[in-house]
Computed example of a mutant assay.
Amino acid sequence: MTVVLVAGATGSLGSLIVKNLLERGATVRALVRPSSADGGTRLRDVAGHPRLSLRVGDLTDGAAALAPHLESVEVVVSAVQGGPEVIIDGQTELLRAAERAGVHRMIPSDFSINLWGYGYGVNILSDLRRTFAEAFRTSPVARTSVAIGAFPEYFLGPFHEVLDPAAGTFSIWGDGTRKIDITTIPDAAAFTAAIALDPMTAGRDVHVVGRQLSLLELRNEVEAATGRRWALVRKGSLDDLQTEIVRRQFAATNPFAYVALQYQTGMYGGSASLTDVRNADYPDVVPASVAEYLAGPGAAHFAVPESAVDRDDWPATV
């Protein structure tokens, strides 16, 4: 029976990874902060599960303090989010603790577009994840990175400026014909649990995806789901997109003003596209269609938000 520790276990993705691991028969240790020592609301459905234990700790506690939580653990899954102090510093402490405890593999908190399709300086959040990946070069712990493309939960939200319910518009850069990779958070969690329990993924980047469709096809799905027309706004070419990113960088007080567009330049230009997609390795994971997502939790995207998007905290990967 595989023992897995999940960091970031009370988050939207981490909690579902815990649930999927338990369903697959794993023994799970959920690393939770002292403020979530009871597991929080997201772990309520699995509270009391005989193969789940909560371990109270924080990545800032350091490797020595984290190591006892990792004794007898075979795989670490990190679903934490944040800036460099979390993605680089905190995860490095978790990796060092894993080394002390003899952990075999670690899945870092990537869960994003293809991080290796473009160089440094293109995407600030990708740079954080690639910087942390360097720590595995001299580590006995094998790295397994999971790439899923974009989460529609975020891509269709206010942060990406694609869908505007108040104006009834759907905005694109470029011609909108290139396929982009989209995977819901529940499907990403299901894939991640399967990959965590697959020893053949040690030392590999594993690309899995829910759906691949163009922006124009995505707009058609939105119109079909809502039964209304969403006016197509062509914001400019991909060169214009890059110019807009530079303009925002000069004017911004923090990276949240432009990082969504940094993701889009890679997605729309193709450099961030997933390659060697391995869905067939996990046939029991059946991703939701875009129509199913939009008819379910995705319907919330069509309501006018009550407040402006929060630009004061580090966003999720995509």
Rank of each mutant, 00 (worst) to 15 (best):
A288M: 08
R129A: 13
F191N: 00
N123H: 14
L294H: 15
G174D: 10
L95M: 08
A272M: 11
L156K: 02
F151Q: 03
S271N: 04
Y268F: 15
Y154K: 11
V209F: 02
I148T: 15
R29A: 05
K19T: 10
F191V: 04
A7K: 01
R100K: 13
A189G: 08
R311W: 14
L43I: 06
E292V: 08
Q212I: 00
P165W: 02
V6S: 04
Y282T: 02
E306P: 01
S72R: 13
P50T: 05
A194D: 07
H160K: 01
R96F: 05
R228Y: 03
R55P: 00
R100A: 08
E244D: 06
G266A: 08
S15I: 03
V304L: 01
P186L: 00
F191E: 02
R105V: 10
L215I: 01
G149S: 09
L232H: 09
G14K: 09
Q91M: 15
L294G: 15
P50Q: 11
R143M: 12
D198Q: 03
T226S: 14
R100H: 06
T183P: 07
D240K: 08
P152C: 11
T177A: 10
L156W: 06
G14F: 08
A196C: 12
T275R: 12
A252V: 04
A64L: 09
D38Y: 02
D276G: 05
G266K: 04
G298A: 10
T317D: 08
A280R: 14
L54F: 12
T177D: 13
R24W: 01
G25A: 02
V208K: 06
R130D: 10
L115E: 08
A150Q: 09
L13K: 06
E71W: 02
A135N: 04
L94A: 08
Y263F: 15
V162A: 01
T201D: 01
S72G: 13
G168I: 07
T169M: 09
A295F: 00
D312Y: 11
A101D: 03
L232G: 13
Q81T: 11
L215R: 11
F250E: 07
A288D: 09
T177Q: 14
R211P: 04
L43Q: 06
K179E: 15
V141H: 03
H49Y: 12
A98P: 09
M200N: 10
G174L: 14
P152M: 07
Y268A: 04
F159I: 08
V222T: 11
A190N: 06
A190W: 01
D281T: 01
R247L: 05
G25S: 03
R211K: 11
A193F: 05
G176D: 10
I185P: 00
P199N: 08
P283G: 12
I17F: 03
Y293G: 09
Y293T: 00
